[in-house]
Every structure is written in C-alpha cells, then in structure tokens.
C-alpha cells in the first residue's frame, strides 16, 4: 500500500519532528521511571504503543457523539477500561507477562501521551489516521526510552539486557559504574542531552 503524504506525516512525524517526548514533552514521568534497564523500557514502550493506538481508534469512532463538556472524562474512562481489560486478559492467558508488567499497567493510565493524543488528534480525525497516529507516537516514545535506557544501563550497571558488556578487567583497572546513572535525575539529564542534539540538527524546532 502506498502512503499518502498526510499518512506518512501522521505515522512518521512522531518519530522525530513531532516526537512525543522530546518535542511535545509528554510522558516524561514514566520515561524517567522505567529507563534504568533496557528490558523494562522496551516492554513499557510496547505497552504504551498498543494502548495509545487502541484508545485513539475508540475515541476517534466516538468523536462525533462525545459531549464536549465531559470529553476528558469519556477519554479517561475509555483508557482506563481498555487498560483494565487488557490486564485481565493477560492475567488469564499470559500470566508471566502480566507479572512482568505489574506496575506498568498502572503507569500507562497516568501517561500523559495518551490524553495528549486523544485530545489533540483522535477527537478530530478519522479512525485509520488515529490508529497510525497512536502507533507513531507510541514508537516515538519507545525510541526515546530505549536510547535513554541504553546509556543508563551501559554506564550505570555495565550491562545490556542484563548481560555484562563491560569486561571484568576494566573494573580491575579502576573503572567504576556511574552510580548517578541509576538515579532518576540522570534520565532527565539524558533526555535534555537528546533534546539538545535533536534541536541542533533540526533548526526549525528551535524557539526564537
């Protein structure tokens, strides 16, 4: 299938030019909480992508019927209901996954990207575009999480995916893991560095 320009922008824009974390600055809280290691960061990115895409579609289908004054409540109910159903289904059919996800499920509901995309996009666009927008933003979010988690796990614990990549002999020569990397403030600093590099490359994003 060939993608039209608009579809392309909706799907691929959030990866860089309109990235939810580093341009829209949404979902920062969870980006700090789950990026100590790569694995949880990927799981979280995946979970958010699926839920954003699904709730975007539901809200987009309902968009013409939703009363304006209670739209935020309707969005919240849809998100909460979807997350609950998904978590119940996981508990029944993929128990190990649900144990691994444990706290993420709750964190997904609090993720600002969800409300942000529902309000900014799904309320005024067709279901297919909303699905793409949800996927794009979810992947854009996951991308930043993975970059941050990569550096935090590598320099904080000397591992990637829990496997040692910095050889033991480095430690014998006096190399030490950077304890600050494990702390959440370092995630903020890393996100700041990513924003810096990103804006240096994309001059049109720089504020005047």
């Amino acid at each position: 299938m060939r993608l039209s320009d608009k579809t392309k922008e909706v799907l691929l824009g959030p990866l860089s030019q309109n990235n939810p974390v580093i341009v829209q600055v949404l979902g920062i809280c969870s980006a700090l909480a789950v990026t100590v290691q790569l694995e949880p960061a990927i799981v979280m990115g995946l979970a958010v992508t699926i839920i954003v895409a699904m709730s975007n579609v539901v809200i987009s289908l309902l968009r013409n019927t939703i009363p304006m004054r209670i739209r935020i409540i309707v969005q919240l109910v849809v998100v909460a209901a979807l997350v609950t159903v998904v978590s119940e289904v996981l508990k029944a059919f993929a128990y190990d996954v649900s144990v691994q996800l444990s706290v993420y499920i709750g964190l997904i509901i609090t993720n600002c990207i969800l409300m942000g995309r529902l309000e900014a996009f799904a309320m005024s666009n067709k279901p297919w575009d909303s699905l793409l927008d949800g996927l794009g933003n979810g992947v854009g979010y996951a991308l930043i999480l993975i970059i941050v988690a990569f550096f935090r796990e590598l320099f904080g614990s000397g591992t990637l995916f829990g496997m040692r990549v910095i050889p033991e002999c480095f430690y014998d020569w006096g190399y030490a893991n950077n304890g600050l990397m494990i702390m959440p403030p370092m995630a903020l600093i890393l996100v700041g560095c990513i924003i810096w590099a990103h804006r240096a490359k994309n001059k049109d994003l720089q504020e005047k």
Binding site: C29, S30, L32, A33, T110, P184
Partner: peptide, 16 residues
C-alpha cells in the same frame, strides 16, 4: 496521574 511516577522517582532517588 503523573504525580505517582514523579513521587516514585523522588522517593527512589532519596533512598541512597
């Protein structure tokens, strides 16, 4: 909302 995650970070950060 987001406070949960933020507070969690603050708590964990102050632990060590």
């Amino acid at each position: 909302c987001c406070n949960a995650a933020t507070a969690e970070i603050a708590e964990e950060a102050s632990n060590d």
